[in-house]
Design a protein around this nucleic acid. Structure first.
Length: 360
DNA sequence: TGTATGCAAATAAGG
DNA sequence: CCCTTATTTGCATAC
């Protein structure tokens, strides 16, 4: 297992840092504030094409605009398909993915395997030959892939469930989803962008990648699965009557309104991190007012700062625990971990500051 | 270019 | 409200 080098920690490029004070295009939700306008445009096109949440017909102008956007998006899609050597718009019907036999799935899979990124183990399957070199069975939350891999292979026909979650079913869907996505000529990134625009939870390219590879816990998978299923159904409809410029379905406007999107991940600037670390050195438990001050100084949400301190404490604690268990025999460095423990268990500062805050 | 992945931000759950 | 702990998830970037 290769440990990350220290240099890896300082690889946050300045330009890509997102802070809460960056400009926000009001047309899109603040969640997209750190996308380039080009990305936003593409995202918008993707939305029209895939979300199923497009507007009902309003007036001729709107329709014309929609039509243009729709067709330009289609054009882009077709270009992509040609680039990847897919037959033009075959879009094989694949609605009953749950009932597809394993054989047909794998045959389609093999067909596309050569056309696509060969570095990716496309068969995303049980016969994952290149298992991770380190069979990290010490993980407390094993992924589906590892669970299925470590399982005795004799019960291939039996359903393997964890916490009432059917792993085989998820695996089957993951496979079907990937096939469908590729058949539509879409990348993981594009699906992620489409999801970010639809109602309900969104997932990034990373998440989709992990889902397809089953590199997630059963719990996570069962959460993502319905989202992807829904998206797939809508994509199906979109492509089903593509030339009809058909009426968009409004059904999902009323479905799962309650679900929220996750807050976009904050990227701190190196300067901000430096200051945060300095503050942490001085006090691991800053008071509410302290955090407000820091937040104001650095121009981040106070909540973001608070969470940063929580995570920092957690990381410190974990690393102390780790280094402690790592060095069962050797005595060197034992001082550092005990220092960390001392620091974290020192709630004197925290309590005192809280008291001060109450008084003020 | 797309996909895979390390690190850490965000969230959930139980005080 | 804030904490801790465990976990989920995404940004940045390596592959």
């Amino acid at each position: 297992m290769t440990l990350p080098t220290a240099s890896e920690k300082s690889r946050i490029p300045e330009a890509s840092c997102t802070s809460s004070n960056e400009q926000i295009n009001p047309f899109y939700s603040p969640f997209f504030s750190n996308l380039t306008s080009q990305q936003q445009q593409q995202l918008f096109l993707t939305q029209l094409l895939l979300s199923g949440a497009t507007c009902p017909p309003l007036n001729p102008l709107t329709n014309a605009l929609q039509f243009l956007l729709h067709n330009s998006a289609l054009f882009l899609q077709q270009q992509q398909q040609q680039q990847t050597n897919f037959p033009p718009c075959p879009i094989p019907p694949f609605i009953d993915y749950n009932n597809k036999s394993k054989e047909s799935i794998s045959s389609i899979n093999l067909k596309h395997k050569n056309d696509l990124n060969t570095s990716v183990p496309l068969d995303c399957s049980l016969s994952d030959t290149n298992e991770k070199s380190t069979i990290d069975d010490d993980d407390n939350s094993p992924t589906i892939a590892t669970t299925l891999a470590t399982l005795p292979s004799n019960n291939s026909e039996e359903t393997t469930t964890v916490d009432g979650i059917n792993l085989e079913e998820i695996k089957k869907f993951a496979k079907a989803f990937k096939l469908r996505r590729l058949a539509l000529g879409l990348t993981q990134t594009q699906v992620g962008q489409a999801l970010s625009v639809t109602r309900g939870p969104a997932y990034s390219q990373s998440a989709i990648c992990r889902f397809e590879k089953l590199d997630i816990t059963p719990k996570s998978a069962s959460k993502i699965k319905p989202v992807l299923e829904k998206w797939m159904r809508e994509a199906e409809l979109k492509y089903g009557d593509r030339l009809k410029n058909g009426p968009t379905n409004l059904q999902d406007l009323v479905s799962d309104l309650n679900t929220k999107k996750r807050k976009r991940r904050t990227s701190f600037t190196p300067q901000a991190l430096e200051k945060l670390n300095d503050a942490f050195e001085l006090n691991t438990h800053p008071s509410g007012t302290d955090m407000s001050t820091i937040a104001q100084e650095l121009n981040y949400d106070r909540e973001v700062i608070r969470v940063w301190f929580c995570n920092k404490r957690q990381a410190l604690k974990n690393s102390a625990k780790k280094s402690k268990s790592n060095q069962i025999n050797d005595d060197n460095e034992s001082t550092s971990s005990s220092l960390m423990d001392d620091k974290l268990s020192d709630t004197t500062n925290y309590a005192k500051l809280q008291h001060d805050e109450i008084l003020s």
